[in-house]
Amino acid sequence: MSQTIQDLPGTGPAPQTGPGAGARPDAKSNNPGLFRMLLRDKFASAGAVILLLVLLTAAFGPMLMGDLATRQNLLFANKAPFNPANGWEYFLGSDSLGRSVLARLVVATRTTLAVAVPAVAVAMVIGSLWGVWAGYHRGWRENVSMRVADVIMSFPSLLLAVVVLYVFSPSAANIVLILALTRIPIYLRTARAESAELQSRTFVDAARTFGARPNAIIRRHVIPVVTPTILTLATLEFCYVMLAESSLSFLGIGIQPPDASWGLLVSQGRQYLQTAWWLSIFPGLAIVITAISANMLAAWLRIATDPAQRWRLALPGRRKLIVRLKAKESK
């Protein structure tokens, strides 16, 4: 339906009348800075603020917490959360060894981001550049790339991780590498499909006719179009990678205690779910909230970076439209 609206004459972003018949007076306000557009969107701004908080926590939180995360205090074991009588350290409760859940959550933030962010970033950069290259050139480059992707995809990634992490030591760097490697095909496929479609567009042909080199065309015409899709994909992948890391940690080949990650906290807390729900619920919430914030920001970014869609953000009833757009994308 949003498609229909866009196609209807005269409802899109105002084309002007007449050859060179003037810029509208408000032509400038149509193209405000990204930051100001972000402020106009409540949901995206909320997402951005939450992500910023998470990042700040990861950067400075462990410093503020000191040794609180590892300090055991059996007097305060298994305390329920939200009880001011226990002091701020135990505001989110404590585990069976009396360690502060809040402190462990803060420390885990850094570990989690230190694994998930590089893993997603490495997979995204390698996968999407590779995919864009393969899709642009078609032919044997595309075929070989897709078969390689198939091989990686068809191999059980967890099994691969288990083998690799047993052979090498289960260090954070190795976890990042193995998670990145197994997720590359996701970006590769998406980027290839979009790039293959884009390389047949007329404006790419136009660039070819004045002799632009393939790499220049990819940089100028393909990557800017593919990037928003890839970013949206990356936010979804962020959740996946966090969960995959927690699975590995659960198997004992991921993050090694006493270090903690959100995923590890969830899986460690699982056995106490009946008696101390707060042990796994809070880290679980952290994962969910971070993922949703990232997703919301990505959905906004996707529209904001597309000049053909940007006008939607300027509309009063835009919330509905964005939701509708999202629904269309997920189809």
Partner: peptide, 19 residues
Amino acid sequence: PGSPPELKNIPAGCVYQDR
């Protein structure tokens, strides 16, 4: 000269006045 008006910007008076 010019091009047809958008539906949301149809002028009051004659629709063809601008051209």
